[in-house]
Design a protein around this nucleic acid. Structure first.
Lengths: 353, 353
DNA sequence: CTGAAAGCGCTTACAG
DNA sequence: CTGAAAGCGCTTACAG
């Protein structure tokens, strides 16, 4: 009833070659102990029927599949860059990759998606999994490596040096002369969100600038979460002269809101993001941001998972990759020092160090 | 011996709840005919044990899995953009997505990879598959949609209007006054490669410029294939004043070779690509290229596959999406008309039409 | 409303 | 060197 005939199975091959499925299986898997003539007969039957073993049946029966999994919730620029790195690390490694992405982005299964998919895959299909930005801790019988783990997660992980990156970003703004610097935070369940906020706080404190809770907006890394927060921040009576957003996606939204409110960037407002997704370089004058090489996150995670699966891993279970500040056109000195709530001396235009 | 205990299976749940696996299965799948009290007992056992059904076992037994597959050979910017579109189309569709990527990029299995993976997945795991840039025709028991199909393939497909796009690109160069225009072709097994070359030929012929076989290099869409071809082209005694490459990846290589040979772009050489991958906007002055919205290719392919699987598809089996020329800094009029092998009048600097 | 049994397509001891 | 049989974790008629 379906289109075409039923798929070719191993027993079709066995029948055609006049042997048992056990023998076909041995030939397919290159096991020793099959006569040359039988092997040839089976091979030609396989050839003629166009037989290909079922991934599902094979992996249900075997313990080792030579397939690695990657579980992700969404598929944005961030994920795309990570995947390129993962694939590069797996090239000619003998491991294929299966990526599982659920379509129910904001649906009922959102909570705990990573554990659900992980369990469903790792039972039999995959030898190990990479989980991208999980919402909570994950566990599995087979090795797991997380990219941007949840806070307090103890699983093996690869992440950027978010603390240093965020600190540098805010120091850059301070160095330009900004004193009122807003912050749009990321999803608090992620360690990265916490570290980036901590970097913001440390940089301010280090420069003797008090942290004002009113200048902190609580986003969740998704671009959509940033617009209302940015609007609120920029419409204040005493708005910040600069905003640091915990992700480029959110920073790009800040740029849009600024335009909408008639503010020029970097004239009226400086903006710094985090991630350095390709789009950041494409905005009019470019977004100043912290590069965290998502490609390398993926590359290192795959390298680690591979070794974990084969039992060869010697390195640390938590890898932290360096970040670097990429200065583009969205940051500049503030138009004039703003001194709400403060009586510091105005020092313009000279600004050394 | 493995890390942790064995995974929780349906019979563990059955045992804990004091019922048969058949009943557990009914509860898990929400089938009617289970008493409320039994359902509750099973539910709580599932909860306590943290049971999650095995994707593999389920799909081996069932005909419908609600999982769609995507098979790809490599994972570059092109694939990443396609995937974003696919995911968007699948959001809240009820279908999850499994992407299968083989790691053996240039290895023994390169030939026929798409059919191999397709068969291995579609036997049981997926309800249908998208195959990206296959090397040959593909067939399957379950629905298949190809993105950028092979030449002469009759499978349902989504592709850009490569012929029109390429024609426009070359007409752009002709309009600037170029007459010696080189071409770097793509992998000839793909319909897209053929159409882009045909567009090149038609534009030249339409403008009364003879097609010179010596100005055509045979690449395969991979960036690496383009460098030697570009070098050969540009080192000729009578080099072209412009080069049209059948993909951005290859065009970017042409740019590198030009630099290496001391040629300025667009002063000494104009370059046009095809695809409009994000990187094209990031080169110094930008690469002029043909946009084919890979995002939409993915989006439409997923939309089509979804309907094909549910049997609701009404539209055509071959979808062709429009392209548009994106003019950036890599194209300009030639420095001076080159008239090797020709005695046409020199008309400079006026160039109408 | 529930269970025993067969079977999805494979692999792997166990016999011979 | 080869086959019969059990079983991986599930689902689905078939009985009751």
């Amino acid at each position: 009833m379906a289109q075409g005939s039923a798929p070719i199975t191993m027993s079709d091959v066995a029948q055609a070659a006049g042997v048992s499925t056990a023998t076909v299986s041995r030939v397919v898997n290159g096991h020793y102990g099959v006569s040359a003539s039988t092997t040839a007969r089976v091979r030609s039957a396989i050839e003629q029927l166009g037989y290909e073993s079922s991934l599902v049946a094979t992996s249900l029966r075997r313990s080792r599949t030579n397939v690695l999994g990657l579980v992700t919730h969404s598929f944005q620029s961030y994920t795309a860059e990570v995947l390129k790195g993962v694939m590069q690390a797996l090239t000619r490694s003998g491991f294929d990759l299966i990526i599982y992405a659920n379509s129910d982005v904001y649906g009922t299964y959102a909570e705990g998606w990573e554990q659900r998919h992980l369990t469903r895959l790792s039972g039999t299909l995959t030898d190990g999994c990479i989980v991208v930005t999980p919402w909570g801790d994950v566990q599995s019988q087979t090795p797991v490596v997380t990219i941007d783990p949840a806070r307090n997660s103890t699983a093996p992980s690869v992440t950027a040096d978010n603390l240093a990156g965020a600190t540098t970003a805010v120091e850059h703004l301070l160095g330009l002369g900004h004193r009122r610097i807003g912050f749009i935070a990321g999803r608090s369940s992620l360690a990265a969100a916490w570290s980036r906020e901590e970097g913001y706080r440390r940089a301010l404190t280090g420069a003797g600038v008090p942290v004002e809770p009113a200048l902190i907006g609580r986003g969740d890394f998704n671009p959509e979460s940033a617009a209302p927060l940015a609007r609120e921040l920029l419409k204040r009576a005493d708005p910040p002269t600069a905003v640091f957003a915990a992700s480029d996606g959110m920073a790009l939204e800040v740029l849009k809101v600024a335009k909408e409110l008639g503010l020029t960037v970097p004239g009226d407002l400086s903006v710094v993001g985090f991630d350095n997704i390709p789009e950041s370089a494409l905005t009019e004058s470019g977004l100043t941001t912290v590069d965290q090489s998502m490609y390398h996150l993926g590359y290192e995670a795959a390298r680690m998972l591979k070794s974990l699966v084969t039992g060869e891993w010697e390195g640390p279970r938590q890898i932290v990759l360096p970040t670097s500040l990429v200065v583009r056109g969205s940051t500049a000195p503030p138009k004039a020092p703003r001194n709400h709530n403060s009586h510091r001396a105005v020092q313009l235009p000279g600004r050394n160090a």
